[in-house]
Structure formats: C-alpha cells, structure tokens
Computed example of a mutant assay.
Amino acid sequence: MKKLLKKIVQKAGYKISKIETKPALKSFHDKRNHFSTHEALRRSHKRNLIINTVIDVGASDGRWSKDCMNYYPKAAYFLVEAQNDHLEGLKHFEASHKNVSFILAAAGKENGTVYFNNAELFGGVASETPFDTNSIEVPVVSLDSEVAKRNLHPPFLLKLDTHGYEVPILEGSKKVISQANLIIIEAYNFNIEEKSLCFWELCSYMGNLGFRPLEVVDLMAREYDQAFWQMDIFFVKKDNPMFNYIQYR
C-alpha cells in the first residue's frame, strides 16, 4: 500500500517524507534526563554530600524546596522570597512541613531595603536603584544575619535563583559559604543586568571563594533566537576528594 501511494504521489509531482518530531523539553521531574536538577540532586545525595540546612533564595512558593526534600528530607529548609504574591503559598508550605521556615524579603549584602522588579511572578530581580517600571521597594536581609538569628546548622546547601543579583547575596553570605557543601546557582550566558555575571565570570568568582563546578543542568535556549540562555551550576568545594580522580573510567 505504501509503495502504491508513493507511485501515485510521485506521478502527481510530489514526494512523501517522514515528519520529524521535536524532543519534549526536559524538566526537574524527568528522571530520563541525566542533566536535570532531579538527577543532579540524586547524585549529590549518593556522593554523601551532607546537608543539614537548605537555604532556598528565590523560593517562589516553595516548589523547588519541596522537590529537594526527596533527597534531603531531614534537613531544615529556610526559604527567602521577595514577592508578596507568593506569601500564601509559602504559608501553606510552612504549615505542611515542620522543618520549613521562610522570610518575605530579598537577600543581599546587608540588612535594609532594595528595589525589586515584580513584573513576573516566577521571575523578578533586585537592584540598588529603582526600575523604570514594575518597581517596588522590599526588605533585604543578609543570609549570614538570618542564619545566626535563626540558629540554622551547617553544612548548608545554598540555592540562588536570583536573576543576576548573585554577587550582593554572596557578599552577605560569607559565613554560609564557608560552611556550605553545595551551592546551586542559576547562571546566564548574557549580562542580563548591569552588574550581573555571565556563567564563566561566575565560575571564576566562585573559584575565588573556594568552589568549582561539578554539574551543569537544565540548559535552556532563549525564545528570541534559540541562543543558549541559562543553566543551573552545582558548585562544590575545590578540595572535594572526587577531583583527585582525573580519569574518564
């Protein structure tokens, strides 16, 4: 039947060809994707990276922390989120888990206030100067001050989903960083804000803090031209023994 159809179509001046389907986008939950946050966290747990407290900055309604609990269920979780629209979700998440606390604020170098662009519910970025549009003023806290006030115990997992505002947050987290076993940062291929770091600059910055990349996951292309846009980088301490083995097999 296929041959007959091809002959008929060819006589009419056309050609039959197979339609190529595009692969589906991978997500946190896609266990088939080796380079996903899901699989990287699973590997971190198998490598015995001990975590007593997870600090989730840019926590939205707690969904990332909820998924992280699959691998570190006994850790304490401290969530930092600047957007008030996530308040109800955070309250529900805290009420549902005894090991969760949160603060509605941005993280930064020191306690005070900062401007925040709240144009997108699951986006947003902080700035020392006001934005032209969608600019609100929110409290800002240093993570070191909050960890001391709340008596949160190391070793830490520090996760930043902060859209270019990483350096001020890291400057206010020196004690946290010194006691962290894992730092996960959403990194970009473009300088998306005036003082933001591209991913190679971020790797150099983290190198000066004593950390190096171990995993890169959840790569994403931008809609505008499909150029490489962002990824999440898993940083561990430079002196981690796994770096002593330099063979492929």
Results as ranks from 00 to 15, higher is better:
Arg43Val: 14
His97Ala: 03
Ile169Arg: 08
Asn240Asp: 14
Gln226Lys: 13
Lys18Thr: 15
Glu194Trp: 03
Lys175Arg: 11
Leu121Arg: 14
Tyr115Leu: 02
Ser196Leu: 03
Gln226His: 14
Gly123Phe: 10
Phe116Asp: 04
Lys31Ser: 15
Glu88Asn: 12
Ser65Cys: 11
Arg222Val: 00
Pro154Thr: 10
Asn84Leu: 10
Met1Tyr: 11
Met220Lys: 12
Glu166Pro: 02
Asn118Asp: 14
Ala24Cys: 09
Ile103Cys: 05
Pro139Thr: 13
Ser142Met: 11
Ser65Gln: 09
Leu152Ser: 07
His86Met: 05
Asn52Cys: 04
Ala126Arg: 04
Gln230Asp: 00
His163Ala: 11
Trp200Phe: 04
Asn33Arg: 07
Pro155Lys: 11
Leu25Gly: 10
Asn191Ala: 12
Ala76Gly: 01
Asp56Arg: 05
Lys175Tyr: 09
Val54Tyr: 06
Ser204Glu: 15
Asn134His: 15
Phe131Met: 04
Gln179Cys: 01
Gln247Cys: 00
Ile55Phe: 00
Glu120Lys: 14
Ser44Arg: 00
Leu214Trp: 14
Lys159Glu: 12
Ala187Gln: 06
Gly89Ala: 08
Thr113Gln: 09
Leu157Phe: 14
Ser142Cys: 09
Asn134Thr: 12
Tyr115Asn: 08
Asn48Lys: 12
Arg212Pro: 05
Thr113Asn: 10
Glu137Thr: 12
Pro155Thr: 09
Arg249Ser: 12
Phe211Lys: 02
Ser196Trp: 07
Val176His: 07
Asp85Val: 08
Ala12Trp: 15
Ile192His: 06
Thr129Ile: 07
Gly108His: 03
Ile103Arg: 07
Phe122Arg: 15
Ile183His: 04
Gly207Cys: 06
Glu201Gly: 02
Ile185Asn: 02
Val138His: 09
Ile233Ser: 02
Lys3Ala: 12
Ser173Tyr: 04
Ala75Cys: 10
Val236Asn: 02
Leu157Lys: 06
Glu128Ile: 07
His45Arg: 06
Pro154Trp: 09
Lys31Arg: 15
Glu120Phe: 15
Ala107Met: 03
Asp232Asn: 14
Leu157Arg: 07
Gly164Ile: 09
Ile183Glu: 02
Thr53Gln: 01
Gln83Phe: 14
Leu202Lys: 02
Gln179Tyr: 03
Ser101Asp: 13
Val100Leu: 00
Phe102Gly: 02
Ala126Leu: 06
Gly172Asp: 08
Gln179Phe: 00
Tyr71Phe: 15
Asp61Gln: 01
Leu79Ser: 10
Glu223Val: 01
Pro130Thr: 12
Val236Met: 08
Lys149Asp: 15
Pro213Gln: 06
Asp30Cys: 02
Ser17Thr: 12
Met242Asp: 11
Cys198Thr: 12
Lys22Val: 13
Asn48Pro: 00
His163Pro: 03
Tyr245Ser: 07
Gln10His: 13
Thr53Met: 01
Phe199Thr: 01
Arg63Ala: 12
Ala227Phe: 13
Asp161Asn: 15
Gln226Gly: 08
Asp218Tyr: 08
Asn151Gly: 11
Pro155Asp: 11
Phe131Gln: 05
Leu25Asn: 14
Met231Ile: 00
Gly172Ser: 05
Arg249His: 13
Glu94Thr: 00
Gln247Leu: 02
Val147Asn: 04
Lys175Leu: 04
Lys91Leu: 01
Gly210Lys: 03
